[in-house]
């Protein structure tokens, strides 16, 4: 009944890691798009929009991802809306990420000195030109390290989707550990795969940062 941990299991784990990467990528793109919208709503000069954005951020940041996954996958069907595991995972990971991205990016936008806005204005640039040519490029560079840091967190958070049936890296490790009773090498392998994914992200971040000449 108990079998050996074999190279075939490593292949199985690598295949499962594709889900980990796919889920994280989807959350990055989906969460990025929603996050931009929320970040803008958070800072536009229109109070009700600020309130809505803040309420959204507080709600999402204040509840665990596991609970959100649960609500989307098991809760929506109770209201008669059928969702597949992929839709539920993509949706809840995107929404979860969006709240964090929105706050990171709002902070980055606001950390660009008001003097930069003024310098642009004094040269006759329109509001949109000041935003797109002066403030955003600086904000993006400020935002890179915290954004990548959150992405690494997100890569690991995808393991929670095991609850709704995904066999991603952590769940695959658990299944193999249960069959081999060799958790140490199995989870050690999983840790190595996670490390490779996250290390690639951190290298990417360093590259982007190196090219930056952000405000001092």
């Amino acid at each position: 009944m108990i079998r050996e941990f074999s190279p075939a299991d490593v292949v199985y784990m690598l295949a499962a890691a594709r889900w980990t990467v796919a889920l994280a990528l989807f959350a990055m793109v989906g969460g990025g798009l929603i996050g931009m919208l929320v970040a803008v709503l958070r800072i536009v000069a229109f109070r009700p929009a600020n309130w809505v954005a803040r309420a959204y951020i507080n709600l999402i940041q204040g509840t665990p991802l596991l609970g959100q996954l649960f609500v989307f996958f098991f809760g929506l069907p109770l209201l008669g809306i059928q969702v597949g595991a992929w839709e539920a995972a993509a949706l809840s990971l995107s929404i979860y990420a969006s709240a964090f991205f929105a706050e990171i990016w709002r902070g980055s936008l606001q950390s660009v000195s008001p003097r930069q806005w003024e310098a642009g204005a004094a040269l006759g640039l329109t509001y949109v030109q000041r935003l797109t040519h002066v403030v955003l490029p600086q904000a993006v560079r400020i935002a890179v390290p915290p954004t990548v840091g959150f992405l690494m967190q997100l890569v690991k958070d995808t393991s929670l989707t095991a609850l709704i049936g995904f066999i991603e890296l952590t769940r695959a490790s658990q299944i193999i550990s249960a069959a081999t009773f060799a958790p140490l090498p199995v989870y050690g392998t999983a840790a190595a795969i996670y490390f490779v994914i996250c290390f690639s992200l951190s290298r990417l971040s360093q590259r982007l940062e190196k090219r930056s000449h952000a405000a001092r």
Binding site: I2, S6, A8, Q174, I175, I176, S177, A178
Partner: peptide, 14 residues
């Protein structure tokens, strides 16, 4: 289950 041997677990070919 796939994590409760001998009731359900993955074999060598997973």
């Amino acid at each position: 289950p796939v994590d409760v041997a001998p009731f359900g677990s993955n074999d060598a070919s997973n």
